[in-house]
Design a binder for these strands. Structure first.
Lengths: 257, 257
DNA sequence: TGGTATATTAGGTCTGACCGTTAGACCAGA
DNA sequence: TCTGGTCTAACGGTCAGACCTAATATACCA
């Protein structure tokens, strides 16, 4: 028998059920609204959002709240905030930079092993080379050649060598014309750089091999030989990873000698 | 001939060069300081930072500034902020979640082509399968089997099918025990899901093939057969990508019929 | 013993003020 | 006609103080 009052059980309590509800913060609401507009392309890149005080008027929120919302978007890489006259929040599309930052945080925060970084590179980079061989433009080639020149002329400076090394790898990724992959490679390269720079691993022999490998991969990309590009890049990053592993073994257990 | 006055060119102009300088904001300074302490492991995960008002006392900054700093760290996934008594900013290590969010932003913001997503998956996932075959634990296997059951029992619901599909792919990535790769795969899966759900691409035949492919990859992982895992996964994601491309071709040019 | 007020402690929001920086207009001296 | 100085207005950045709201510990009562 149904109770006399709808939605009421025999003991007089309401039987209406509600699921746990989220009470979003005001600043989140504003941030979400603005983010949605930015991502949906309502604002072209570079257009300024209204000044904070104008947003206060429009939204009836306090300046504190408006500023927190803008700060959120800034950290997410969706706006660039400039101070001073004619300043403000300028719409920006999230780029490789914001991704690289996040990856860097993940790596440091989780103390990801160098081995995992190298593994990931082995997964990604041969594929980058393959795509690069297919889609490379003449400008891409120019960047690759420039990086090759830099790496050969790096002299004795370890720093210059590593930087030029990164430049080349990034150039390959860019030549793939896949922004996801290139973004990832930028972050990865930096992290591997940071992990490698303090070790005495890089000697003259390693440099020589590296230069040679880069040239051969570059040639494959120039010739649009996708298969060769995959094969050579794969071999390059794999042997590099193996060398580092060997090096770590040798240096981690020096007590046995 | 050198000019009479040092650092001065012939026409009297100074030749001293300066690079644009950055003047960090107070909130950034605080955020950087706290971030450094968190990442260097000074605070164990879960420990609360001092309350905002306490930080105000310690840093001699205003509450506004302290709050902005905390907001930055929150967006970066380094703290989780709870309100109420016994609330506060609790230290957190950035996880796959924050990475997935960033990738999602990148994909939406740059309007990355579905083809690029599929390409990236082709690069990453076979490698994940390989690592999974090497490092899988029994729990990993249990998750894979569970996902396989779900996908088979998804009935007619497209949503259930796609969700179970994602679960399986994520399970493979997790089994690789490489947090970088698994974080990437989580974001990729979601994005591909979002791009696929509205298309009428998934029919019974696709489902059947998918189930079969998943089972065969799962078997390779169970048997710790790394080579087979790579080969089968590679084949699976490649044919899936090709099917989607075909489908898009068919549906994008329906005018010719 | 177990539920229920109440106090306490936290973050969230608001107000209003002032500071620092910058673009642009204008002016004055070399 | 340059160059530098000055002023102003328009921005974001910071500050101080107040109040609101949510969550929880704790004391209290049935």
């Amino acid at each position: 028998m149904p109770p006399a009052v709808p939605n009421t059980t025999r003991n007089g309590r309401s039987s209406i059920q509600l699921t746990p509800m989220e009470v979003p913060k005001a600043s989140d609401v504003l941030a979400n609204e603005l983010r949605e507009r930015i991502l949906s392309g309502d604002y072209v890149e570079g257009t300024p959002l209204p000044p904070e005080r104008e947003l206060v008027v429009q939204t009836k929120m306090s300046r504190t709240t408006v500023r927190e919302a803008l700060r959120i978007l800034e950290v997410q890489g969706l706006v660039r905030i400039k101070a001073g006259r004619a300043g403000g929040a300028f719409v920006q599309r999230p780029g490789e930079q914001s991704m690289a930052d996040t990856v860097a945080l993940l790596i440091r925060g989780r103390q990801i092993r160098l081995a995992a970084l190298l593994e990931t590179r082995e997964a990604i980079e041969p594929f980058c080379a393959q795509l690069a061989a297919r889609h490379r433009t003449d400008e891409d080639l120019a960047r690759l050649d420039a990086a090759n020149d830099d790496i050969a002329g790096a002299g004795d400076s370890l720093d210059d060598f590593l930087q030029a090394n990164i430049d080349w790898h990034v150039a390959v990724a860019s030549a793939s014309h896949n922004e996801l992959l290139s973004g990832l490679m930028i972050s990865l390269s930096r992290a591997i750089y940071a992990a490698t720079e303090n070790e005495g691993f890089i000697d003259d022999k390693v440099r020589e091999i590296t230069v040679k490998a880069h040239r051969s991969v570059t040639k494959a990309i120039r010739d649009k030989d996708a298969d060769a590009a995959v094969r050579r890049m794969s071999r390059h990053v794999h042997s590099y990873a193996e060398s580092i592993k060997d090096f770590e073994k040798r240096t981690d257990i020096p007590l046995d000698e």
